[in-house]
Write a protein that binds this DNA or RNA. Sequence first.
RNA 1: GAGCUCGUAGCUCAGUGGUAGAGCGUUCGGCUUACAUCCGAAAGGCCGGGGGUUCAAUCCCCUCCGGGCUCACCA
Length: 757
Amino acid sequence: MEKVYQPAEFEEKIYSQWEEKKYFSPKIDRKNKNNKKNKSFTIILPPPNANAPLHMGHAMYVIEDILCRYRRMTGRPTLFLPGTDHAGIETQFVFEKKLKSEGKSRFDFDRETLFQMIWNFVEENRGTAKKQMKKLGFSLDWSREKYTLNPEILKTVLATFNRLHQDGLIYRQEKMVNYCTRCGTAFSDLEVVYEERKDPLFYLKYGPFVLATTRPETKFGDTAVAVHPQDKRYKKLIGTEFIYQSLIGPKKMKVVADEAVDPKFGTGAVKVTPAHDPTDFEIGQRHHLPIIKVIGLDGRLTDLTGRFAGLKINEARERVVNELQAKGDLVKIDEQYTHRIGLCYRCKNVIEPMVIPQWFVKIEPLAKPAIAAVKKNQVKIFPNRFKKIYLNWMENIRDWNISRQIVWGPRIPAWYCLDCNPNIKISFLDKSNGEPKIVTGFYKDLKKNYSFDIIQKGLQSLTAPVTATYEIPQPKRCSRCQGQSLLQETDTFDTWFSSGQWPLTTLGYPDSEDFKYFYPTSVLDTMWDILFFWVARMIMFGLYLTGEVPFEIAHMHSRVVDIERKKMSKSKGNVIDPLQMVEKYGADALRMALVFGTAPASDIVVTEEKIKAMRNFANKIWNASRFVLNNPQTTTNNSISPSDYPDDQWILAELEKTIKAVTKNIESYHFGQAAEEIYEFFWHKFCDQYIEMVKPRLYPVPEKKALDTLNYTLGTSLKLLHPFMPFITEAIWQIIPDQKDDLIVSRWPVAGKEKDD
RNA sequence: GAGCUCGUAGCUCAGUGGUAGAGCGUUCGGCUUACAUCCGAAAGGCCGGGGGUUCAAUCCCCUCCGGGCUCACCA
């Protein structure tokens, strides 16, 4: 053995050894499915983005690996199942950036071609994450690896959609949704991030009113002025109408009374723009106001705005304000007005509330059982405070917009008959002669010049009116008119619609043997920031499809942050690359650094210094082992008989305590504490004290009891350390002569009496 | 506006109803035949302020101050 431990000499070798011996593939013993002691233990890996290399957050998979390695050593058939996610928006966003750098955009391609290009792009990168996970030592069963776009997984995801549809839980409706004009897609409520901003608040003369608004450019879409029903100032006007002389002509306005208006804000009167503001939309619904869309999906004012048409929102705002001022309708500007504004989580562009038809899941019937399951602790959420957060969100949950106007993802399996729905708006790439060019229009007009075939082949996107008829699943011919000009919806699923079914799809729901044996899974560990996005959806889907929870424990871990408590991100330049750390200090050092001394769900501070300290610890383990192994071997590591020496009795008693503490702390998810216990024992008790005490008994002739105790304590320590630091412990274990099994499948020590079975 | 969470040694963080812990850093001394990625010793904290419960509080309760976070349709 060398003087200094060299991780690089062992890690790869040992990992492939584990793989070759198939230790990561559990032995299925169906008879024991319900035997508590031999019950399967399953963790499904939260799938990383197939397209991106791992970052420090992914290194937190170490928590799951600790659990799996521990359970495997206690003898349970343990499955840790890997996979990757196509990550719809994320990946398309990255790909579009790449296109842009090449001077192109998504509009240069039809959707089939674009999809294929992204597919190829992802394929090029897909192996990276896998290699990296192996380097980190994760005991994943690669023979069962999955990808969200695997055909069998897609099949299940689409079947779920069909089933939801049959159960009346899918609807397509024109509602106020969050739309990003830059990404060109709608988002769910969860994907909007809010930011405090200071914007001018404009006070405008408005018929008999003066009212305050931050968005004068949307005034062309106003259909009413709303006041509070009890507001004395305006009571007489409620129910009346007036003619407003707008910049593009006179317009009839209603005055409505609505509780949503705060009489203390501004002047207590508010313009109602149902097409472009969530509150106004609801007021509009209550008072049956027309919806006039003055901002298009391209983020420019529409033709309804006269000479303002075509202007971008900000330009329009400036011009409208200037003209209102010239006209004398601008009463004052409050420049210090701060409010919260919704941004696209992905590109940070301002989210534009838009009324467009989207596909929704009626969520309450799914949420109810998911709430009950958590309340009854069928799913235990750790740490406990996340249970409250979960329940609070679930109890106020709103229907889920699952449609995205992007190509990268499974397409919603609904078909429109063009003959029955001539008002479907279609964009396609006409490649019939010369340079391809984008053609956009209603089918009823397009069909005069283009064949269905050309439209279908060049299809980019379609927008069906909310009244359009559609069929689910795909019919051969239109069931109403027998027409054959059918187009599939071009919207794709929210990525979370697919990953929300991950515990089911990865195991081969509904009838595979794996599914029957491994579902429900044991633990789901992830960072708390996707509690709603993912964890909640998995619980809902799991219960909806199987009646059983998808996992028994949902364990939330925290963010990995830098020393200034900031989240690591490329733009901040504060990333520590986990793979680089593995190269420098070894996987074990990084793994230990990620768990050592951390508390459940508090930020995890990782610094290179800490990793270095753990590297030193690895070296300590190496050298203590070197010392022990340089002496004759006298025991199998698995048992020891009592000793009369107080030194031996002392260290063995301390070891017992440590076994208990480590076991208890792993079982209760206090990994930081567990790591500290074994660290403290091994370094400061075993090395600093016991080895020093025992040295006189080793020279000149080693004394048997001393050797026994050394060997036994080392062997047991290696076991306790193995879940945390799998490589070095296995490496040393295999140097010990006459081992029956590899450490990874050895038996976890039991305090009280050690059993060799 | 509602809720959650944190405030412990210079730094980063654990922890406990009964005279405070780790890693890194600092000071002093050591290449002691496993390890200088080491060993030995030491300095360093009214455990955010105030009040309460208790025989006893850093740990429980209240309140204040100071960070962080989540949720919420206020123009």
